[in-house]
Amino acid sequence: MHTYSKTQLAKRNGQDRDEIWIAFEGKIYDVTNSRLWRKGTHYEHWAGQDLTEELAEAPHTAKVFERFEVIGMLET
């Protein structure tokens, strides 16, 4: 599986490129086709970044990520 840097992830924010990616617990998910992530935002969350710490404030569990394709790993 391909590894991406935080800089590469940041470019997939729904503004700079067509792809919309987010990271969670080291995995990068493609949320491009999700109606909830149109234009790279989902409520107060922004695509192109690691959302691991922000999940604690979300009204859902990590199970929500199961519906999205893992397309890579976030470089540590």
Rank of each mutant, 00 (worst) to 15 (best):
G48E: 03
L55T: 06
G26T: 05
M73T: 13
E53Y: 06
L74R: 11
A56Y: 02
N13M: 10
A58R: 06
D50N: 12
A62E: 15
Q49M: 07
G40Q: 03
D50H: 07
T52Q: 06
T41A: 08
G48D: 02
A58Q: 08
I28A: 03
E44F: 07
Q49C: 04
T61S: 08
R17W: 05
G72E: 08
F65I: 10
G48A: 04
R67F: 04
L9E: 00
E53P: 09
E75F: 09
K11A: 14
V31C: 00
Y43N: 12
A56R: 12
D50W: 08
G40N: 04
E75Q: 15
E75N: 14
M73A: 11
A10L: 06
E66A: 13
E69T: 14
D16V: 06
E57C: 04
I71V: 15
Y4K: 09
E75M: 12
A47Q: 09
G40P: 02
D30W: 00
Q8M: 09
F24N: 12
R35H: 11
H60L: 04
E54W: 08
D18Q: 15
S5N: 08
R12W: 01
N33M: 13
E54T: 07
E69P: 09
S5W: 06
M73H: 13
H42L: 10
A10H: 01
Y4H: 12
F24V: 10
K39Y: 07
T32I: 10
G72K: 06
R35S: 14
H60F: 04
M73C: 06
D16G: 04
R38I: 11
K27W: 10
T76N: 14
E57S: 15
A10K: 03
D50G: 05
L74I: 11
V70S: 01
H42F: 07
S34Q: 09
Q15M: 12
L55P: 03
S5P: 06
G40A: 06
Y4A: 08
A58L: 06
E19P: 04
K27N: 15
E54P: 05
R67M: 11
H60C: 02
L9D: 00
T61Q: 02
N33T: 09
A56F: 03
E25I: 07
H60K: 06
D18F: 08
I22K: 01
W21K: 03
G40W: 00
L9Y: 00
I20P: 01
W46P: 02
